[in-house]
Amino acid sequence: MSLQDFLQLLSSVMALGGALVMLISMIGVARFPDIYCRAHALGMGMTLGVTLLLLSLWIALGSQAAGLKVVAAIFFQFLTIPVASHLISLAAYRRGIRRHNNRPLDG
């Protein structure tokens, strides 16, 4: 098995893994009881899933063609996704949207 074959295999496995992570996180979004828990599932799927997909793209293209573009894309994913999930939770908290089992703060 040459290095080329190995890289191709690695890239396919990572693409499949990323798609699987996103599928699992979407099942989580459909199943979880309230908006906060759904934000957790969504955040996980976006960060890990998209990162795996982008890394697989990086390996498939080769670092010569892709350069730093993929790294920049991953960097911005990691910069923006937590902000989005924080804002969703903050909006829900300020509006007082019902939580699963409604425990009080620190309760």
Partner: peptide, 21 residues
């Protein structure tokens, strides 16, 4: 990630205990 993924696939959703701390 592993624990969230496991929770979203198996187990009852009513057994999880989300909290604000």
């Amino acid at each position: 990630c592993w624990s969230i993924g496991r929770a979203s696939l198996i187990g009852s959703i009513h057994s999880i205990e989300p909290r604000l701390i």
